[in-house]
Each structure stands twice: as structure tokens, then as C-alpha cells.
Simulated assay, not measured.
Amino acid sequence: MIYILPLLSVLAGYVISLFLKPGSSAGFKLLLSFSGAYLLSVTVFELLPEVYQSSSANIGIFIMLGLLLQIVLEFVSKGVEHGHMHHQEEAGKFPFLLLTSLSLHALLEGFPIHDHGHLLHGVVIHKIPVAAILSVFLMRSKMSKLAIFLFLTFFALMTPLGSWLQENFEFLQQYSAPINAVVIGIFLHVSTTILFESAKNHSFNISKLAVIILGILLAYFI
């Protein structure tokens, strides 16, 4: 399932993009808030205590490196990882830099999934709105259907590839703590940005609060 579910989440995001307008759909924004809350909670409840327990030496440095890396990646992706798309691309031009940024993000998030089943659920939920936003952008950029298919397929394969590399290469397993710490930094940035940006003008929204609490509770009890 660690290989199949991330692929299906990208497919689900693409299907959603065909029927909804992710930028304005209230249901989509609630899904985004739920994914941010769940991802943040799994990171705090599971990943964070584990990396400090297994290797406390300089682990905080790697967490901050992951956070800074995500900031750099978002200069290229323009925020698609947290449900926003402000990228301007020439019509029909294949966005190689965008693909590189998103693929590196997806590859890294795949590394800790093999040993953390709950994280798999968080990544899958997170990928659905990301893939929907991305699909809308690709279709609006007037790329060919083949180019869109290749882009989404390559992007979808990156997270399973990260899980496969972590499972099959011993030297990566030896450095699992610092790698997971980098991923924690990435998740902290992405999830908190989702929670802070998903409400217009940061106004109080009871529906958003409810799905955030639900995401936290599910991450804690499941």
C-alpha cells in the first residue's frame, strides 16, 4: 500500500480538478485544512519524538535545514505544496523547474513512510489537494495531454520511489534519523502554512476549526 496509495492520491486529485474549482471550493479548502492538521499532528506525535530519541545530536539542525529547503523549493513551486498556485508559465511550455521542485519534495516525504503507517495516511490526504491544484494549473497552461500525463506520472512516482530507496539501500537506513529530521522540517513548514493560509483574512471559521480538531484527533488515536 505504501507504493499504491500515493499513486492513487494523485489520480484522485486529478479527477477532483475535472469537477471542482479547487481555488474557490469550500469543500476543497476544508480538505486542505484537514490534511494540514493531520500531517502536522503525525509529525509532532510520531516523527519528532522518534528522531530525538534515536539521535539527539544536532537533530534540530537537520529539522531547520528541512524547513529552509522547503522555503527554497517554494520559490520555484510558488506554493502548490500547501494548496496555492501563483505560478505563471508560458502557454504550452513544459515546467521543468516546477517538476523538479515538486519531485524533490515528494521524494523526500517518501523516505519515512515505510516505518510510519500513520504518516502514509497523512501524505496521501495531503497529496490529493496538491494534485488537484497542480492539475488545474497544467490544464490552464495549455500543455498537451501527453505532457500533462507525463508530468503527473513522474510526480506520482516520486513518493513511492523514496519509500523504495529507504527500504532497499542500507546506507540510507543508517542515516534515517537526519533524513527524517529534514522531512520533519518540510512537513512543519507545509502544514503550518496550510493552517494559517486556508482561511480568508485569518477569520474564524467553525467548519475549519472542526476539521482541524478532527484531523488532530484521528492522528492521535489511529
Rank of each mutant, 00 (worst) to 15 (best):
P49F: 04
T192L: 13
E74N: 15
H118F: 14
M1C: 09
I194W: 05
L152P: 09
L11E: 06
I113C: 08
F221G: 00
H87G: 02
G27Q: 06
F137S: 07
E197A: 05
Y220K: 02
I148F: 03
F75N: 15
A177D: 01
S55Y: 14
S55M: 12
I133A: 07
G92D: 09
G185M: 12
G13S: 09
F155Y: 05
F204P: 02
I59T: 13
L152M: 14
P6S: 11
G60V: 03
I4E: 03
H84W: 01
I113K: 14
S135I: 07
G117P: 02
L99K: 00
L32N: 14
I212D: 00
F111A: 07
H121W: 15
G66N: 12
S101C: 10
A156L: 06
P112S: 10
G162Y: 08
H87V: 15
E197D: 09
S207E: 15
H126W: 00
I213R: 01
H118P: 14
A177P: 03
W164E: 03
L195Q: 00
A156N: 07
G60C: 00
L73S: 06
S56Y: 08
L67K: 09
L97H: 12
V182M: 12
F96N: 09
I63K: 04
I216A: 13
V44E: 00
L67Y: 15
E109M: 11
L108V: 04
G185E: 15
L20N: 02
S198K: 00
A177W: 08
A131R: 04
A177S: 14
L48K: 11
V42W: 03
L188Q: 11
T153Q: 01
K78I: 00
F151D: 09
G36A: 11
Y14Q: 03
T153M: 04
V136I: 06
P22K: 08
G66P: 09
Y3L: 01
V10S: 05
Q88I: 08
A12I: 14
L5S: 09
H86T: 14
L108C: 08
H121M: 15
L107M: 07
S103V: 10
Q88R: 09
D115R: 03
A12M: 10
E197N: 08
G83C: 10
L188P: 10
T193I: 05
H84Q: 11
G110I: 08
I128M: 00
S207P: 04
Y220H: 14
G36V: 08
L119W: 12
L99N: 01
G66T: 13
A91P: 12
G13T: 03
A177Y: 07
H126R: 00
S207D: 13
L7M: 06
L30Y: 13
I186N: 08
L104A: 05
I213V: 07
E109I: 15
V190S: 07
S176R: 14
F19G: 06
I59L: 09
L73G: 13
L217T: 13
Y3F: 07
S191T: 02
I179M: 06
F96T: 13
S77E: 09
L107K: 02
